[in-house]
């Protein structure tokens, strides 16, 4: 899966990925983001995940999202999900993620 990470502002990280966020790719996705955050000069306080080109998310993907959310919380930072496709929104709702995340 293609993952691109881009710093913005002083402590922001913008992540865009394309394809399926599933058993095969979820771990890779999570590890890549964490590594990027650790490698940043500044501590990342604002994480934006662009879902516009994600076609599928499974529980493995949702698990990674929850992990990232917890990490950002711990750092007093924030996690935002951007442009979640309609067909994926149900999955977020199903597991109650809509209660703490803005899924649009």
């Amino acid at each position: 899966m293609e993952i691109s990470c881009k710093n913005f502002g002083i402590d922001g990280l913008y992540v865009k990925a394309a394809g399926r966020l599933d058993l095969d790719s979820a771990v890779e996705y999570g590890v890549k983001i964490k590594d990027t955050m650790e490698d940043s000069n500044e501590e990342i306080k604002e994480l934006i995940l662009d879902f516009s080109e994600i076609t599928f998310i499974s529980s493995f993907g949702l698990k990674v999202v929850l992990e990232l959310y917890k990490e950002m919380q711990a750092k007093q930072g924030s996690l935002k999900l951007k442009d979640i496709p309609e067909q994926l929104k149900n999955s977020f709702k199903m597991v109650g993620f809509d209660k703490f995340l803005d899924i649009g």
Binding site: S58, F60, L62, K63, E67, Y69, K70, Q73, M94, V95
Partner: peptide
């Protein structure tokens, strides 16, 4: 319905 901080990472799949 738990707040996100208290939610375990696993167990979502079979529930879904």
């Amino acid at each position: 319905d738990l707040p996100p901080e208290q939610r375990p990472l696993g167990g979502l799949g079979i529930f879904m």
